[in-house]
Every structure is written in C-alpha cells, then in structure tokens.
C-alpha cells in the first residue's frame, strides 16, 4: 500500500478524506492539551551550557499574527507557511512553489516582505507577522485591495494575496512609487496570468488616493 510520506496516511485512505476536513480535524486535535514551555521554543535560555534541541515531535509555538497571539503545537521543522495555513487556518497565504520562487506565500514580518514557505515558524517567534487576513477583510477592504478591484488587477487570483502583501509593504515604505519602483516591489511575485500591468495600475490608483 502506498503511504504518503508527509501525512503518514495511506494514499487510498487519504483520498477519501477531503484535504480541508483532514486538516481542520487535525488542528482541532492538536489544540487539545497545549503545553507552554516558556522560552524553550524561543531559545532564550542563554545561560545554559547545552543548546536547546527541539523536536522532531511537536513543540509549543506562540506566534504574534495579525495583532493576536496564536498558540499551536507543531514540529519545529514546520515552515511558517504551513503553520499559518494548516495549524491556524489562515489559508489566504498561498502555497504554490514552496521554494521561495513565486511569492504567493508572501507575508510581512515586522513590516518586511518574506516568503513564508522558506523559513521555519520557530524563527518568527517574537516578530509581528501580518498575513493577507490582517490587511483587510471582505467587509472592510484596504484601499489597495479596493484598487485591485477597480483596476481589475487579478485574473485567476492565486497570486493576489501575495501581490497585495508586497504592494502594501511597498506603499508603506514609499507612498508614491514610480512604475520602476513598483516593478521592483513586485519582483518577487509571479503572476502566471500575466496581470502585472493592472497590478501596477492598482498601486498607482491606491497611491493617488493616498491610501495603503
């Protein structure tokens, strides 16, 4: 029987469970019995002679995401992206290449864009993480998100969360970027539909309105 190396489930069995149910179910189980080991995951025990060694099993990880503390038990080898999506249900951040090449997983760490697939979640402990869910909501879009709608800056939409996060960071640092600066700002975000031109227009639109 073929076993899936990641889920540890037989492939046949895995196909019967919808991926979404499986993940939601797994997070619910993990949420029971969270044990906080203060400092252990953050590695702050500087006085110790022996370094902390975490895992390979789950450890307590507390992250500051969208201005709230989120606690989870996850293996220390979990990437920030997988932790956000699979453990916190923040599925706005997309998993596409999972190799730091496409930017669909872009989030802000202390205001700077990073590829959340290419770092471990434990290395984000103590930082302020902002995902697309922290930028706006369907009821309360950010000016830039509204600009994406006005300028038709998405087609299939899969790169859009990453694009919006990158453009939000860009406008934060430079409220009136020129076209070259916008291109540089989205240089790490790939859109396979090729909607770059409209993304650039969205940033200009938001910038003209003085929004972010």
């Amino acid at each position: 029987m073929a076993m899936n190396p990641e889920s540890g489930l037989p492939d046949e069995q895995r196909e019967k469970v919808s991926r979404r149910t499986f993940i939601k179910g797994a997070s619910a189980v993990a949420a029971v019995g969270v044990v906080q080991i203060p400092g252990a995951a953050a590695g702050i025990d500087k006085a110790g002679v022996e370094p902390d060694i975490l895992g390979p099993g789950p450890v307590s990880i507390r992250l500051r995401v969208n201005r709230s503390d989120l606690d989870v038990e996850a293996p220390p080898s979990t990437t920030l992206l997988d932790l956000l999506r699979d453990h916190h249900g923040l599925t706005g951040t997309k998993r596409v290449c999972d190799r730091g090449s496409c930017g669909a997983c872009t989030v802000l760490i202390d205001g700077r864009v990073v590829d959340s697939c290419s770092m471990l979640a434990i290395d984000a402990i103590g930082s302020e993480i902002t995902t697309i869910e922290g930028i706006g909501t369907p009821e309360n879009l950010s000016d830039l998100q509204q600009a994406f709608i006005e300028t038709d800056a998405l087609q299939c939409g899969f790169c859009t969360p990453g694009m919006v996060v990158s453009c939000t960071a860009l406008l934060e640092q430079n409220p009136s970027p020129d076209r070259d600066q916008i291109r540089q700002g989205i240089a790490g975000n790939i859109c396979r539909c090729g909607t770059y031109q409209n993304v650039i227009e969205a940033v200009e639109y938001a910038s003209r309105k003085g929004g972010k």
Partner: peptide, 19 residues
C-alpha cells in the same frame, strides 16, 4: 519534508560542537 530536530545554539562554540 521529513521532520527534523532543530538545535538552537546561542554561542559559536555550541554550534561548532553540535556539527
């Protein structure tokens, strides 16, 4: 990705000895 342990040395000496 196969789960792995993560060592968090706080000094160069600790890191070096681990490797």
């Amino acid at each position: 990705m196969k789960p792995f342990q993560v060592a968090l040395p706080s000094t160069i000496d600790q890191a070096s000895k681990l490797q």
